[in-house]
Design a binder for these strands. Structure first.
Lengths: 217, 217
DNA sequence: CCGATCATGTAATTAGTTACATGATTCG
DNA sequence: CGAATCATGTAACTAATTACATGATCGG
C-alpha cells in the first residue's frame, strides 16, 4: 500500500483511450446505438460499478469514430430530431479485444469516499457517525436488492451458490434445479453477483462497526 | 442505477474543496507535517481506499494554507533540504468538521475496472477470463492479509467478530478476551475491517464466478 | 401556446496523474 | 566520484463532471 508515485518504467500498454472510453466502446459492440440510447443501456448494465454520464458518452463517441473504430450515420426519426447512430467496425472490435487482453487493471484501487468519512469519524460526534453507518447500511441494502433483481432475471439461484460456498460441494448447486453447464452463465450476470457479495459484506461490516464503535447491534 | 445526469437542483453543500483535498486536510489534523511525510502517512493509512499521489498532496497543501486552514513554516534540517511544514489552524479543524457533518457521499459509486473487464469477458477467450479471475483472487488475498495485519496491530480479534456475525450473540465477542468498551475501538481500524470483509467477499465471488463460468472450483 | 420529453451536443471547470526539474546529502 | 535517498515542487496533460445551449415534437 505504498503511494503510487512517479517512477516505474512504463510497461508497453495497448491503452490508447481512457478506461471510460473502452467502456463506451464495449457497449457499442452490442450493436449500433445513438449516444442517448447508449446512455440508457449503460444505466441498466454497467453504471453500478462504472458510472458514466451522458456528456461523457457524447464526447467519447466521436473520438471512437475518429479512430476508425466506429462509423456514424444520421438517422431521421418520426417523433424526435435526428439521431446520430454509431456502429462499431471490425477495427473497433479488434482494438477492444486487444485492450481486454493486454491492459491490466488489477492495481487500480477505487476510491471509497464513505470509508474516508468513517476513517475520520473521531473528528465528528458519535451521533453523526451513527447516522453515517445507518445511511451506509441502507444504501448497501438497496444495492443488494438491485443486484438480486438482475440475478433473478438471469435465473441465477443465489441461495444455491451460498450453500456451495459454505460446503464446497458442487453437488449443492444442482440440488433444486437442472445442473447448469459451464459457460451457460453470462459473465455479465456475474458483475451483479459481485455487487451482491460486496453489498452483503458491507452490511455485515456496518453491523460490526456499530457494535465496536457504539456498542449497538 | 440511472446515470447521474445534468439536472437536480444543487443541495446547498459545504464542499468547497475536492474530496481529495479534505482527505489531505484530515491527515493534517493529526499534527504538523511536511508534504513528504504526509504522503508516507497516507500510504500507511488511507491509500488502500483512497489513493493519493505525492504530486496531488503538494498541490493541495498550498490551497489549504491559502484558505487559512493551515499555516506553513520552512524548517531547516541537518541531513536534507529544508522542509515546508504545514500546521492546521482552528479554522481548518472547523472546516473539516463541517465537511464531515454536511457532505453526503453515500451516492458516490466507485469505479471498478476489474468488474468492467469481467462484464465484457464474452469478447475475450475463456483462458484469458480464467487468468483475469486468478489475478483478481490473488490481489484480494493480498488485500486481506494487509488488512489483517492492521487489525492485529490494533488488537482486534477478527475471529471473534466472525462468530458474532454468525450467531448474533454479543457474548461471543467476550469469549476469549476482555470485553471491549464501545468507543475503545478506533474508527480508523474499522476501515481495515471493511477492506478485509470486501476482500473476503471478492474471494468468495471469484470462486463462484470460476464455478459458473468455467466449471472449476 | 406552454411545458415536458426526446435528442444532441459544447464550454467551462474540476480532479487527479505523469513526467520532469532541481538540489542537497549520504553511503560505498 | 557516482548512485541512492531526501525533499520540494511545477508543467502538461488526461479524465470526467457540471452547466449551458438548442431545437423539434407532442399532449393538454
Amino acid at each position: 500500500m505504498i503511494p503510487r508515485s512517479d517512477d516505474l518504467g512504463n510497461e508497453a500498454t495497448t491503452k490508447v483511450m481512457s478506461t471510460g472510453g473502452y467502456a463506451v466502446l464495449g457497449l457499442l459492440l452490442d450493436g449500433p446505438v445513438s449516444g442517448w440510447d447508449l446512455a440508457i443501456a449503460a444505466g441498466r448494465s454497467i453504471s453500478h460499478f462504472w458510472p458514466v454520464t451522458r456528456a461523457h458518452i457524447y464526447t467519447e463517441l466521436p473520438k471512437i469514430a475518429h479512430r476508425g473504430w466506429a462509423t456514424s450515420t444520421s438517422v431521421a426519426q418520426r417523433h424526435s430530431p435526428d439521431k446520430r447512430v454509431y456502429r462499431a467496425t471490425e477495427a473497433g472490435r479488434d482494438a477492444f479485444r486487444l485492450w481486454l487482453a493486454t491492459v491490466d487493471l488489477t492495481e487500480e484501487r477505487g476510491r471509497q469516499p464513505l470509508q474516508l468519512q468513517l476513517f475520520f469519524a473521531a473528528h465528528s460526534t458519535p451521533e453523526h457517525t451513527a447516522a453515517l453507518l445507518d445511511k451506509w447500511r441502507r444504501s448497501a441494502e438497496q444495492a443488494e436488492l438491485h443486484c438480486r433483481e438482475i440475478l433473478a432475471h438471469k435465473s441465477i439461484d443465489v441461495a444455491a451458490l451460498g450453500r456451495l460456498a459454505l460446503s464446497g460441494d458442487p453437488a449443492d448447486l444442482t440440488r433444486d434445479r437442472e445442473p447448469r453447464k459451464p459457460g451457460e452463465v453470462d459473465a455479465r450476470a456475474l458483475t451483479a453477483l459481485f455487487g451482491l457479495r460486496r453489498a452483503q459484506a458491507d452490511q455485515i461490516c456496518v453491523s460490526e462497526a456499530q457494535q465496536l464503535l457504539l456498542g449497538k447491534l
